[in-house]
Simulated scan of single mutants.
Amino acid sequence: MRRMRRIGLVMYLVAACMVVGACVGSLFGPYTERISALVASGSGRITMAVCLSIVALNMLAVLIFLFVDRPEPTCLRLDGDADIEVTTDALASIARMAASERDVMVEDVRVRIAGRDKARADISIEAILLARCDIESVAHRVQHRVQTACDDMLGVFGARVRVRFLPSTTETITKEAAGER
């Protein structure tokens, strides 16, 4: 999908450059007669029609995207009630405090509101384990603590918590290069 998007973008840029170049070249500059004659020919008309249709289709797609795109919600509605809301910042703060341990350094907490009625939270925690111990048991312990904290403090039941551990050590390789003179 990414490759198709990139191909479409390149086609749009080429078509837009051709349309703008033909318009500017036929209105201004020393070669207005040549460019006007080029655009007036049969192949020039077909090329400009194709370029204009590509530009128009892209403008239509952008317009549809602007109307359809919804911003990501920033508040969670408890039990689907519109009067009681919990912000994602509050959820992230509670999750960060609950996930912190002596041997766990919390790197990043991301909260995403899910569900049709915006009543479910997906919490992703990226952490670094500082001690050599069983990662799976630490992950389950952190996950359970975050879920119970969300249940007890904010009343957010059923929060899905995902814990991901990042590498705790990095290696630096240094090479010396001897220069010849």
Rank of each mutant, 00 (worst) to 15 (best):
Tyr31Ser: 11
Ala40His: 09
Phe65Lys: 12
Leu13Ala: 12
Phe165Ala: 09
Cys23Gln: 07
Leu129Gln: 12
Val19Lys: 01
Thr47His: 00
Leu63Phe: 15
Ala98Phe: 09
Arg120Thr: 13
Ser168Met: 06
Leu129Thr: 04
Met11Trp: 05
Ala40Arg: 10
Val62Ala: 15
Met4His: 09
Met48Thr: 01
Asp81Gln: 11
Ala114Arg: 15
Ser124Leu: 14
Met105Pro: 00
Arg5Lys: 12
Arg132Gly: 13
Glu85Met: 09
Gly44Asp: 04
Cys150Pro: 00
Asp152Lys: 12
Val156Tyr: 03
Val156Ala: 11
Ser100Ile: 07
Ile94Gln: 05
Ala61Gln: 06
Pro71Asn: 10
Val138His: 03
Arg77Gly: 00
Gly115Phe: 12
Ala99Trp: 04
Glu72Cys: 01
Leu52Asp: 01
Val62Tyr: 10
Phe67Pro: 00
Pro167Glu: 14
Ala127Pro: 06
Ile54Ser: 02
Val55Trp: 02
Ile84Ala: 04
Val50Pro: 00
Arg70Cys: 06
Asp122Met: 13
Gln147Thr: 13
Ser26Phe: 01
Ala92Ile: 05
Ala92Asp: 05
Arg77Pro: 00
Val111Ile: 15
Leu166His: 02
Pro73Ile: 08
Met59Ser: 11
Leu52Met: 10
Asp89Lys: 09
Gly8Ser: 12
Gly158Ala: 10
Leu13Tyr: 03
Pro73Gln: 08
Val138Thr: 13
Met4Gln: 12
Ala61Asn: 07
Gly155Ala: 05
Asp103Ala: 11
Arg181Ser: 14
Gly29His: 05
Tyr12Lys: 02
Glu72Asp: 13
Ile35Trp: 04
Thr169His: 11
Leu154Gln: 02
Met59Gly: 15
Ala92Lys: 11
His144Asp: 15
Arg141Asp: 15
Asp152Thr: 14
Asn58Trp: 10
Gln143Glu: 15
Leu9Trp: 12
Val19Ser: 01
Val146Met: 07
Leu129Cys: 04
Val142Thr: 13
Leu130Trp: 02
Ala61Ile: 08
Leu66Ala: 14
Cys51Asp: 02
Gly8Met: 11
Thr32Gln: 15
Ser36Gly: 06
Cys75Pro: 00
Glu176Trp: 06
Val14Asp: 03
